[in-house]
Design a protein around this nucleic acid. Structure first.
Lengths: 226, 226
DNA sequence: CATCCATTGATTCTATGCAATCTGGTTTCG
DNA sequence: CGAAACCAGATTGCATAGAATCAATGGATG
């Protein structure tokens, strides 16, 4: 379960629809290109079409699905160019947010430390739980974004961070990449504690860039063998 | 009339509702803090509540209104901190997009030249039409964003650029600021023509930052005398 | 007199029915 | 035989009615 940081603030039924459809897409249950019919989703989820429509519109603004007027919505087909675009923006926004957080000095360092430690512990098991790892990672990044003091950048990034979740799963990381990623987290905490914006920004950028390299390699390999 | 670059892709009624409500907010007809009742808007606009709801949800994601569950939506009250946040993000995203456009070299230079020239002509009249100027300016920035090749950054910025329109009106610019702003536009075209990403990025950042300084001065003065 | 609770009014949220629109296949005409 | 018009099916878009929820008011009670 990927606990989302920014609550959708919708009604109960619309919230159910949003969360369920989003999860079905992220889990790969609804592959790219598939048409999402309002009727079918409403029946499956046990709600009416109205909240389903709201959820779909929201997912469209987040880029998870594309909405064609009078046609319907289909789940977005992710190309390498899409991933490059998303990581390009993340590598711009997240470092900036991290620098802001360092400058303000209001980051919840103990929470970050806790999350980083728990990620260490999760990796140090025989069969790491990559879902739990992803969840902890999301919460780590969310906490930093929250500390930036900009609600806008928070919602902007959080709508992008889980988008390539199908690709950027930790299970594809090499042990070396995994260790490096966790080390980045600890270094970020140190940079924040030192109130050093430049440091915080740099290490976050390195973090995102390295993730992009891993993801690209994975995506290119997958594109070669469809 | 502020022609929006990215079409909302909604139905006819929902589109009408979106455009109308958005304009009423931007024009100041609906002041900050006012509650937007679905019934009243539907009656005024001559459509049903359903498309009005869609429009409101969209405006909420764009930050023009805030949506409180089971309470309704009210138009956002803009603080100086909000403006700072928006300009901070613009000064991050727009220069990046400009650099991307310069690197790709696919910008529609003739269109940009035309827009910049028309802005010059508009300013060179006895009583400049500031609305037309704002429209041309929006289209100039939109064109550059489109040339960046990233649809995401395009929609991200376009949802922020017209937000503080009540504040960032050219009518508050001094003649010197106005000339400088127009000069920036021409310099951007030169940088794009030279395929010089660093130059393009720098001049765009200067452009946004100078706009922020003008806006801040105006906003602070207005805050002092409510 | 202050506080708590119930009731009321207004508004959003959900459900459902109808109209508008698009796709695909069939027919008809040149 | 090819192409354009057309009809049928399905799906979205819109409208409206009922259900759920919240703030506010008034009265009862300690």
């Amino acid at each position: 379960m990927t606990a989302q940081g920014a609550g959708p603030d919708l009604g109960p039924a619309a919230d159910i629809a949003y969360q369920s459809i989003r999860l079905q897409i992220l889990s790969g249950e609804r592959p790219g290109g598939e048409w999402l019919r309002e009727d079918e989703l409403a029946a499956v989820l046990g709600v009416s079409r109205t909240p389903v429509r709201e959820a779909l519109r929201r997912l469209a603004t987040e880029g998870l699905v594309t909405h064609e007027p009078n046609r319907g919505v289909q789940v977005h087909n992710w190309t390498i160019e899409d991933l490059q675009e998303v990581f390009g923006l993340r590598s711009l926004l997240e470092p900036w947010a991290c620098a802001q957080a360092a400058a303000r000095g209001q980051a919840d360092l103990s929470a970050l430390q806790d999350l980083a430690d728990r990620m260490d512990a999760t990796v140090d098991t025989p069969n790491p739980d990559f879902e739990a790892l992803t969840d902890l990672n999301n919460r780590f990044h969310s906490t930093i974004l929250a500390a930036s003091g900009s609600r806008r950048v928070q919602s902007l990034v959080s709508s992008m961070v889980d988008v390539p979740l199908v690709w950027r799963t930790f299970s594809r990381y090499s042990p070396q990449e995994l260790r490096r990623s966790l080390a980045h987290h600890h270094e970020m905490i140190d940079a924040l504690r030192a109130n050093d914006p430049a440091w915080a920004e740099s290490i976050m950028r390195a973090h995102v860039q390295s993730a992009w390299t891993s993801t690209r390699r994975h995506a290119e390999k997958a594109a070669g063998t469809p």
